[in-house]
Write a protein that binds this DNA or RNA. Structure first.
Length: 482
DNA sequence: CTATGGCACGGATT
DNA sequence: AATCCGTGCCATAG
């Protein structure tokens, strides 16, 4: 079978060019973006209707379709390697909620609505928190904005509780270092710096990263690497690497990682793969447990054509006839396209979850280097469809990490991880040539020059600058300020 | 002389 | 068609 463009889904064939165009656009949209689009469409198109009451009868999970959710309908106890993939509505992704119940913390079970951000954080820090400070923590946590940042001044909190600001800062520090790292910071910058600090305890950080965050955040978000490089006194390529590292590992809006929010696209170029479009978790903790893949639906209920509208169409006043007809067509189109989008993404994730199971569960080292093209062939869709479906989307992994979906297609990540491991275990600094040999032995034949590149990507210094003091002091230069 | 980083080219990928 | 990525060659630093 050679690639034919339109066997995307057996049930739905593109009928018009408009259909094609629309499918293409929708495919590349984030769940959040599509949600906004649908809202707008609902408001302006009378032919469209949203039925909100779809819940799984047994677990009450909101679904974009009626009937039981795949998790509940699934015979319990069995464990398969087959992932469970389905479209899921996460109401809390689109509506801000903010109450805090310090006591009575419900245990999270898979499929239950996720915690409030405040509750979630409070639970983490509770053991370390002095009971007297609980009020303060609660105060801070309930004052966060949608991004997880603290907008009210610390002085104010201190005054309210009649304590010194330093005490507030202590509590705040605890909060900031809890997951999602950086919450409660007064600014995106500080949030990222805290994340950097925490990250540095485990991984090497490219030099100057902290400076880039402090001094060049404006440039960073605009992707002006050239200027960034100049400001930091490094080459553009290096600036690019730093930027890459930052956008991969740091999150300026820690709050969005866990509950997301409709944040208008006021910052057009801002990286925004921070609200997951897909959430992968595990059904239970047994080793062979299947993966549960939730494709976040842009809808809270089910979209359909308003039957009343359809009825009244026949009696439409003649001058409105054409307009109404148009509404109807547009509505039908949108519904179909969304179905097709969901369908494609589900199939895509189904396959990905199988291929990258090890990666999802065990981490970077087990990433299978696959290409979008190969996947497109398997799914019998056009390459560009896969591209669109992958771009701009974020996946939340079982351990809570949120990564861009495109990472599933990283061609060199597993080698870079192997490289990192070798260097972590080395006794005396190995040169790139030696590293290349080591990698070849492990089945990764790459050129010496490429080793250098990977090393740089990982932010690892060249051999002569690596005074290997055995797994400690991760480059103090990186945190240095000015 | 050796180890690395910069630049640029060609093939693969998107 | 545009972009990304691995590599080779060469200059430079150590």
């Amino acid at each position: 079978m050679i690639l034919q463009s339109q066997s995307q889904s057996a049930t739905l064939r593109p009928i018009t060019t408009a259909h094609l165009a629309q499918t293409m656009t929708l495919m590349s949209l984030t769940a959040l973006e599509l949600h906004q689009k649908v809202e707008a469409e609902l408001a302006s198109n009378p032919a469209l209707e949203l039925i909100e009451d779809h819940f799984c009868p047994s677990c009450h999970r909101p679904l974009p379709y009626s009937g039981p959710c795949p998790i509940c309908s699934r015979p319990q106890g069995l464990s398969t390697e087959e992932p469970i993939v389905f479209v899921s509505s996460r109401e809390d992704f689109y509506t801000s909620r903010g109450k805090l119940q310090p006591d009575d913390l419900p245990d999270d079970e898979i499929g239950a609505v996720v915690d409030d951000l405040p509750t979630y954080v409070l639970r983490q820090i509770a053991p370390e928190l002095h009971p007297d400070d609980r009020q303060i923590a609660a105060h801070i946590l309930t004052s966060l904005n949608e991004d997880g940042l603290l907008e009210i001044p610390i002085i104010e909190i201190a005054r309210y509780h009649h304590v010194l600001p330093s005490r507030i800062l202590e509590v705040l520090r605890l909060i900031q270092r809890a997951e999602p790292v950086g919450v409660g910071s007064p600014s995106p910058q500080e949030a990222m710096l805290v994340q950097l600090e925490v990250l540095a305890e485990h991984r090497p950080i490219p030099p100057l990263t902290a400076q880039a965050v402090q001094e060049g955040l404006d440039l960073l978000s605009r992707h002006q690497y050239l200027e960034l490089g100049r400001r930091l006194g490094i080459t553009t390529a290096k600036a690019r690497q730093v930027a890459q590292f930052i956008s991969d590992n740091l999150n300026p809006y820690p709050g969005r990682a866990h509950w997301g929010d409709i944040h208008q696209a006021t910052e057009p170029t801002q990286d925004r793969y921070h609200t997951p479009d897909v959430i992968i978790s595990r059904l239970n903790d047994t080793p062979g447990s299947p993966l549960v893949v939730e494709v976040i639906s842009p809808l809270i209920g089910k979209l359909r054509i308003n039957p009343l509208f359809r009825q009244s169409l026949s009696q439409a006043p003649s001058d409105k006839m054409e307009e109404w007809q148009k509404h109807l067509e547009q509505a039908q189109l949108l519904i179909k396209c969304i179905q097709q989008r969901d369908n494609t993404i589900v199939r895509l994730m189904q396959r990905l979850a199988v291929l990258q199971r090890k990666f999802i569960l065990a981490g970077d080292a087990h990433l299978e280097p696959i290409t979008r093209a190969s996947l497109a062939r398997e799914l019998e869709v056009h390459e560009s469809t896969v591209s669109r479906a992958v771009s701009n989307k974020a996946v939340q992994l079982p351990r809570g990490r949120i990564i861009p979906l495109s990472k599933f297609f990283d061609r060199s990540l597993h080698i870079r991880t192997a490289l990192r491991e070798i260097i972590a275990q080395e006794n005396k600094p190995l040169t790139d040539t030696q590293l290349a040999k080591m990698l070849k032995k492990k089945g990764h034949p790459i050129a010496r020059r490429t080793v250098a590149k990977y090393r740089a990507m990982e932010g690892i210094l060249p051999a002569h600058l690596r005074t290997h003091t055995r797994s400690s002091a991760p480059a103090p230069t990186s945190i240095e300020v000015r």
